[in-house]
Simulated scan of single mutants.
Amino acid sequence: MIAAGMTLLGMFALAAAMPRHAPALLGAWERRVPAARLRIGGWALLAAALAATLAASDWPLALVTWGGVLPFSAALVLLGLTYDVRLARGAAVLGALAILVGLLR
């Protein structure tokens, strides 16, 4: 669950790092958060999600699950960018909640 949340947040950060999508996803925060930091943070979150997956006791199954969660996360952010930005922002909030629930469990 933690890896899925990190993947969602990583995809959101990578999308927000693009000049085309930053105004829609970040709004007023666009000027406060540099694109380079978002890009580095996005890739770091994806790498941390992979590391969390490999640290699982049943890592082969977790790796396959991570491989499925990765395009699903990208699709959620893409659908949010296509239809309604609130969906993409909601995906980021869902990712943060997934990390929180995974840490508390």
Rank of each mutant, 00 (worst) to 15 (best):
A91W: 03
A98H: 08
R32K: 09
A91Q: 10
S57T: 14
V64N: 02
G41D: 12
G90M: 02
V93H: 03
G10C: 08
H21F: 14
R39C: 07
L38M: 07
L76G: 11
L26V: 10
R105L: 02
P19H: 09
D58V: 07
A49C: 11
L87P: 05
A74H: 04
A3T: 03
L70N: 05
L97Q: 01
L81Y: 12
R31I: 09
T53P: 10
A56Q: 14
L38N: 06
A74C: 09
A22H: 13
L9Q: 13
A74Y: 13
L79H: 11
S57E: 15
V93R: 06
A48S: 14
L14T: 03
A36K: 14
A98P: 08
P60L: 01
P23D: 10
G95H: 05
G10Y: 13
A48T: 09
V33H: 07
A92T: 03
A36N: 11
E30K: 13
A49T: 02
P19C: 04
G95F: 03
L104N: 05
I99P: 00
P71I: 06
V33Y: 11
P34C: 04
V93P: 03
D84M: 07
G102S: 03
A96D: 01
L81K: 04
A91L: 07
G95Y: 01
G95P: 10
P19Y: 05
S73F: 03
P19I: 10
D84Q: 12
Y83S: 12
A15Q: 07
G102V: 06
G95W: 00
A48P: 02
T65W: 10
L38W: 05
S57N: 09
A4E: 00
R20G: 03
L61Q: 12
G27S: 07
R37V: 04
L94F: 12
A47K: 13
L54F: 06
A36C: 03
T7D: 00
R89C: 13
L79V: 12
E30V: 15
R86S: 15
G67S: 11
L9K: 02
G68K: 13
A62S: 09
R89Q: 15
A24K: 12
S73M: 07
R86M: 14
L70E: 01
A91N: 10
V85K: 06
T82V: 13
T7Y: 01
V93M: 07
T65R: 14
H21R: 00
R31M: 06
M1G: 11
L76F: 12
A3S: 13
L78A: 15
P19R: 02
L50C: 06
A52W: 14
G5K: 02
L63C: 02
A48W: 14
A75K: 02
G27Y: 09
